[in-house]
Design a protein around this nucleic acid. Structure first.
Lengths: 320, 320
DNA sequence: ATCTCAATGCTCAGATCGAGCAAAAGGAGG
DNA sequence: CCTCCTTTTGCTCGATCTGAGCATTGAGAT
């Protein structure tokens, strides 16, 4: 029972928008599963953030723009049971969220951008609630009666609330809670892996690609944070090119939130918050009336304490 | 430039309510300034949280209830400039926020509860904007013209926004931003200490007690988080006894937020959110009509996705 | 019985929000 | 040049929420 030093592992969730879909930067993990860029803190790193930037650039050649700290994970999930506790070497992972807009460039063999909905198909409700979401919820209900949660009388209620079933509304911000509940119920591949130490069985018909170690949990943390934060901070603009149309902005908001938005209300929102200003140019790509190009009004940061896009899902699937 | 291990320091911001004022648990720091309970992660600690709980209990005999992670601080602020960078030993501090309700018990010579407004007098706006707030803002304005921020044309605007002066509204959640701006402007004692390595000069007529190392920044982080989070999570009840009156709940909300609330609207809020239920008893202490006792309705956690007390300041000082 | 004080109940106007109708402005096809 | 199609943009309406203040209730004190 003595003081021990630990290795600091810096982990990056780097997000960009491609094809109206959020993508996360991944590298090949040691076991074949995709991993997040990461590396240990080194003595040459001036700060935690600069260490993170160095690792991401080295592993993916991607330069980072906006960066914020997400969460620090202990090594609770690393199983070293046959090691004497005093001998166990500790690793602490500090996870960061980064946003980049000009991602279209490189995509080496080493690293690749992947839609975050590959890992969380049940989180994409833009075209209505996906089937995988209902299937997962059903599996979860079985677990609340037969599984390890059979003793908990509230388990069923909690599942309904987190998945927005039966009266409860879908809350897009609860990505992390949903993942953790699925993990507990062993409805994600990583859970059985961590328990059994068994080799990765890709089948299981469980939806969503697994990731290396606890990286899918880290990604879920990032999604939750991002979905919550765009509502009161102008983070969306970190993902946009210098000038864009309001509809492109809306599509970015929808991509991140995973829900469909009401077009007219969306523009009313950004208009009355004065988040953008017109560039004077217009863009006619879509075969309809040309859209005015706008850019982010940086001055809002000096005017409103909490500028953001307070998205709310449309009742109907956002068809109009 | 090689991988280096680091010492993990666990820091606790433990909050309770006493005398309608938030108090933070402190221990004497090495330099006489109050410090937050803290200690290094040890090999016997199963998780980060359990390590934290162990240290707080050992140093203050206070058992912790609700605990959540706040932020992880690098050692950027530790000055080791005459040390070769490769030799510098790193310390990473992981800060936690903890809430306790039954604090009235122990208060050894070692540790003591202190009002958090001793450290942040300018943050208490319950009785109107305090003079120290205006004084600080004036000092900040000087800095934006004469000081190191003279080059930044937005510095004045940012100061106005963060301190709620001139059109801008006071945003009680911006405690951390305010502290960081004051630190940058060297309007808090710690800033000059960190720069000059000079002994602590208690005078300076700068408002607010300094704390050990960067602990006042950590406390500011906790206040910001808490003030934001009570609006969408039922954290207030972690600070309340099992049964209480609505007015006591309001006073707790006011103590945390540092703003006065409109009484009737406050009860409408908690009523229509169904956050509490009546116990059947009543309490007549105040010389007026006896107040009904209520308790937290734990079931709300299973009904609403984000139950909380969305406080907003009254225009007038909350006199009625 | 009356007074005082705090708890509780209620109303009202303004702001915000979800939803949908309708006009405007280009391109494509005749 | 006119018409149709498509998407942008403007606007309205009702429901809900919010800030603020007035009024009533219920207990102890005078």
């Amino acid at each position: 029972m003595s003081e021990t030093d630990a290795t600091i592992n810096l982990v990056a969730v780097v997000i960009t928008i491609r094809d109206r879909t959020p993508h996360v930067l991944t590298v090949p993990g040691p076991d074949g599963r995709p991993a997040l860029p990461s590396g240990p803190l080194q003595s040459g790193h001036r700060t935690l953030q600069s260490g993170l930037r160095a690792w991401v650039e080295r592993q993916t050649r991607q330069k980072l723009g906006y960066v914020e700290q997400l969460y620090t994970f202990g090594d609770r999930h690393v199983r070293l049971e046959n090691t004497a506790p005093d001998m166990a070497h500790r690793t602490i992972s500090i996870a960061y969220l980064a946003l980049v807009s000009g991602s279209d460039e490189v995509n080496s063999a080493e690293s690749s951008w992947r839609s975050w909905y590959e890992f969380f198909p049940w989180e994409d409700h833009r075209g209505g609630r996906p089937k995988s979401c209902d299937r997962l919820f059903e599996a979860l209900l079985d677990w609340t009666t037969d599984g390890s949660a059979a003793g908990d009388p509230n388990a069923k209620e909690r599942a309904r609330l987190t998945f927005g079933v039966g009266g409860a509304e879908w809350d897009e911000e609860m990505t992390l809670e949903r993942y953790e509940m699925l993990y507990e119920a062993e409805k994600v591949v990583e859970a059985s892996l961590d328990r059994d130490l068994a080799p990765w069985r890709a089948q299981e018909d469980l939806p969503g690609l697994p990731m290396h170690a606890d990286h899918r949990r880290v990604l879920a943390t990032a999604i939750s944070r991002l979905r919550a934060k765009i509502k009161y901070r102008p983070l969306l603009f970190e993902l946009m090119p210098p000038s864009f149309t309001l509809f492109q902005l809306q599509q970015t908001a929808e991509a991140i939130s995973g829900i469909a938005l009401h077009k007219q209300n969306f523009r009313r929102l950004v208009a009355q918050q004065r988040l953008v200003e017109e560039t004077g140019e217009a863009l006619s790509l879509t075969g309809g009336r040309p859209a005015k190009l706008v850019r982010f009004r940086k001055e809002v940061m000096l005017e409103r304490p909490a500028p953001g896009v307070r998205v709310r899902a449309t009742r109907r699937g956002g068809l109009t």
